[in-house]
Design a protein around this nucleic acid. Sequence first.
DNA 1: TATGAATGAGCTTTCATTCAT
DNA 2: AATGAATGAAAGCTCATTCAT
Lengths: 202, 202, 202, 202
Amino acid sequence: MSPRNVERDRQAREARREHILDCALQVIAKQGLDAANIKSIAKEAKASVGNVYNYFESKDAIFSAVLERGQVNYGRMISEMAANSELNAREKLLAIADGWIKTPTNWAFTIMLQSIRTNETVSPKLREDATRRFTVNLQPMAEIMRQGQRDGLLLEGDPEQHAFYFVSLIQGLTLQLAPGYEIPVAIRAAQLVRLFENKSES
Amino acid sequence: MSPRNVERDRQAREARREHILDCALQVIAKQGLDAANIKSIAKEAKASVGNVYNYFESKDAIFSAVLERGQVNYGRMISEMAANSELNAREKLLAIADGWIKTPTNWAFTIMLQSIRTNETVSPKLREDATRRFTVNLQPMAEIMRQGQRDGLLLEGDPEQHAFYFVSLIQGLTLQLAPGYEIPVAIRAAQLVRLFENKSES
Amino acid sequence: MSPRNVERDRQAREARREHILDCALQVIAKQGLDAANIKSIAKEAKASVGNVYNYFESKDAIFSAVLERGQVNYGRMISEMAANSELNAREKLLAIADGWIKTPTNWAFTIMLQSIRTNETVSPKLREDATRRFTVNLQPMAEIMRQGQRDGLLLEGDPEQHAFYFVSLIQGLTLQLAPGYEIPVAIRAAQLVRLFENKSES
Amino acid sequence: MSPRNVERDRQAREARREHILDCALQVIAKQGLDAANIKSIAKEAKASVGNVYNYFESKDAIFSAVLERGQVNYGRMISEMAANSELNAREKLLAIADGWIKTPTNWAFTIMLQSIRTNETVSPKLREDATRRFTVNLQPMAEIMRQGQRDGLLLEGDPEQHAFYFVSLIQGLTLQLAPGYEIPVAIRAAQLVRLFENKSES
DNA sequence: TATGAATGAGCTTTCATTCAT
DNA sequence: AATGAATGAAAGCTCATTCAT
């Protein structure tokens, strides 16, 4: 039992955890939230039902963890984007919108956020955490809006509100990308970003 | 033959049906989709569980009917708005956005649409119907966009796409109005409509 | 309120009762015992659910009455047959077998008898009545067997037992005539009566 | 990887499945088809309701499996009997009749076959399978009839029809052996087989 | 850790029966 | 008598979670 082994075990466990989360997201995105039960997730992860419970204490915990990971990754991405000095604000919005629209599992995050928030059987802590992360993640987006306004690229107005609208628009759009239907309208990141651009100068 | 007033019975039945739909919407909006089981709906409607099944053949049928009613009402409202010659396009968008934001149950429709679409246990017919109505309802909104472009009030670009963005934005925003959290950002219809305005003329 | 009217009312009520029994038998025979619920029976009788309960105190009572009527009619028919002096025993068996096989609802009686007998929720009185009538009806059949033996037409052996076998054979065969399948073997009354004939004389 | 013996598990699972079928048959035979609900079957098997569904996907599947097992066993028995060269046809019929009459659960198969066939909620596949097996099982019985006719032991006539009558007679008789009543007539295999014997030679 | 059988609460749905009109 | 809405007790089934191995 060298410390090397202990560390290796810890990493293996962490990898297994991540794998289960990946699979949970896959199942949700492919089959919908209702069909995403523990058995399906375990099957997708090639694990047994019982073993999943060795890594997560409950189904809610899995869903929360999937959502948390998504939110943290998104927060990291958008913070980096806000700090990025090589792109202007318009290009940043474009990159963000493009990234979300192109990832066909993103609708699942919107639904999970909603489900966790409104489901009274989910522990208050998990619900608050999810909501708080969402709110926190609005800040770097508002910062980008501010940058754009400073440069005259984006529309004037309360940057937090614009950030909120931008995120809501993207979330609303991702819902249309869920499996099970065909909306006969193309979604184009460039078009969508134009809504937030300052066109008085052009 | 019968000591009952047939016509009054028919009306009472119809009223009872509507009442159940009202209650179902209330439960969904107040407690979330997961908590909206037949027992809760029956309780809200002050009916017995069994009696609900005298009016609807299944839980899915109730949810579909609630959604359908919402979609039909929305479709009627927006069609009238498109045909309205007393308001300009900007005022129309404002009225629509304002109406949706002020109705605190509207988030439920967004979630129900999503749930019905992605839930594989819902009959294909109901799923298709819901999706079709959504698509059909995009047309009058696109017409309003066209009107605004003709008058130079709204941003240039594919009107259908703009309609789609507008609806998605509103749907995304209603999700934030679900119970269970406090988003520290005000939603203002006027601000939101500004995104679609043509500001090059100002 | 002349006695004439009272009598007419009584007859009308009796006719209505009979009609409901007819319809119950129809439903059972066409859709099977499981599908024969009060609603279906009422529908077939063009009556309301509640009204059926004005004529019968329970579903069991209806089934019992249907069975009883069938058993009484059968008992009457077979008693007359036993008393008939114009036909010989062989011809009597033939007539009986032919009549049963040709009536496509008879399988329902066999199933109802079985169901009522073995269903513990049916009142003991009804169960005993049904069984008693079955047993009583064996006597005229045994009498016919005795006649046939006396005339050297039918096989020797305990007449009650032969009666029992004959009835069981016919009941077993009627089961095959229920809807829902195709048994690729013809049923011929003459052939099956031959089993009970005394062929040593021929 | 797993601390479990896979092969032993597989066998245990198979045994448990069989046990549930045994218990289901017991419940049906003792309490009747109507009383044979999942709760009762689970109780008899000393299992929980949910666990029964680990072995069978539906109640219909259980009933079908019970029936299938009975039909397959019967088919095997009768095929062996047909191929047996140490007994003559009369002795074979006697052994078959005797075996069926002595097994007090056999009435349940007759009722289950009927119920599955006529119940429209049972999947068509299961209904067809049950009917097909019944039909297939008629063949070895017809072969025995043929053997008996060849040896001059059994009555002349279409062997398939005689097989059909013999089976129907036995099925009809087993119905009388269900719990819940006392038929005051003994059933004797020897008597019953005599019906099918060729007595012209005696 | 790993397995999947086992549990039981909870859900949807059915249906015999009652009841107000 | 006649109606059909209303009731509530089951029934079938699902699934998160636990547990023996």
